[in-house]
């Protein structure tokens, strides 16, 4: 973001198709600058789709596409947008992209569309999209903005998928709808006969919304114990 102050000649020198800086834009948001656990953006709504992996995966892909392309479009238009009405312009671009994503999903995977219901629409007000537009796309070139959007969407999707995997396995004994562990012969590991996993019980708490919040809290704890720089000093 310090790039705005860099003079044009130096910027041209650095301009690469996929150099170190571009790679950093993609990788950073996955851990050190994760939108959910570090920037606190985009926690809204999407956690509600993490009871199972499949909707979480589709949600992650949708958010990544919307952040990537809205960053790209806004970055292309950034010089023509008057400061006072930029919010409205951004919202219209995001709403358009989300509508496209929703219609495609409705056409090709009606079941998941039904399950996600309002949460696809809520990508519009997901702070991560607007946050990246304000913080990056309004001041940077299109290709880098696009990478920044994809990176942040992926960092966000990663958290979503980690939580969904934990919740689906411990709560339902399944993964992506395949039955992994449970008390009947349909499951891969049958707890009624298996000597090793006889103790297993599905954990009803993991299906409740509260468990997603606990898991995010614990993820933040783990991340910040590994990386002391991120600890909140206030």
């Amino acid at each position: 973001m310090a790039e705005t102050t860099v003079s044009p000649t130096i910027q041209e020198e650095k301009e690469e198709w996929f150099g170190k800086k571009e790679r950093k834009l993609l990788i950073d948001p996955i851990d050190n600058d994760n939108p959910v656990t570090v920037q606190v953006l985009g926690v809204c709504s999407a956690l509600a789709v993490t009871t199972m992996v499949e909707p979480a995966l589709i949600m992650a892909v949708s958010v990544t596409l919307v952040t990537g392309f809205s960053n790209l479009i806004i970055s292309l238009m950034r010089k023509g947008i008057p400061k006072q009405i930029r919010m409205i312009v951004q919202l219209v671009v995001i709403a358009f992209l989300v509508t496209v994503v929703e219609q495609v999903l409705k056409a090709y995977n009606y079941e998941v569309w039904n399950k996600l219901s309002v949460f696809i629409g809520l990508i519009i007000t997901n702070c991560i999209v607007m946050g990246r537009l304000e913080a990056y796309a309004m001041a940077n070139k299109p290709w880098r903005s696009f990478l920044d959007g994809i990176g942040n969407g992926a960092g966000y999707g990663l958290i979503l998928i980690i939580i969904a995997v934990i919740r689906e396995i411990t709560g339902k004994g399944a993964l992506m709808g395949w039955k992994i562990i449970g008390p009947s012969p349909d499951y891969l590991i049958n707890t009624q006969t298996s000597a090793l996993f006889g103790w297993y019980q599905p954990n009803g708490l993991m299906v409740l919304p509260a468990s997603a919040l606990f898991l995010v809290g614990i993820l933040i704890w783990i991340q910040r114990s590994r990386n002391r720089k991120l600890v909140d000093v206030s």
């Binding site: 409740l208 509260a210 919040l213 606990f214 809290g217 704890w221 991340q223 910040r224 002391r228 600890v231």
Partner: peptide, 20 residues
């Protein structure tokens, strides 16, 4: 509160408890 959990982390866990 343990240092790495301070701020955001504990806020999430509190929200979960309130939800229950």
């Amino acid at each position: 509160v343990p240092a790495p959990l301070r701020g955001l982390g504990i806020a999430f866990i509190l929200t979960g408890l309130m939800g229950i």
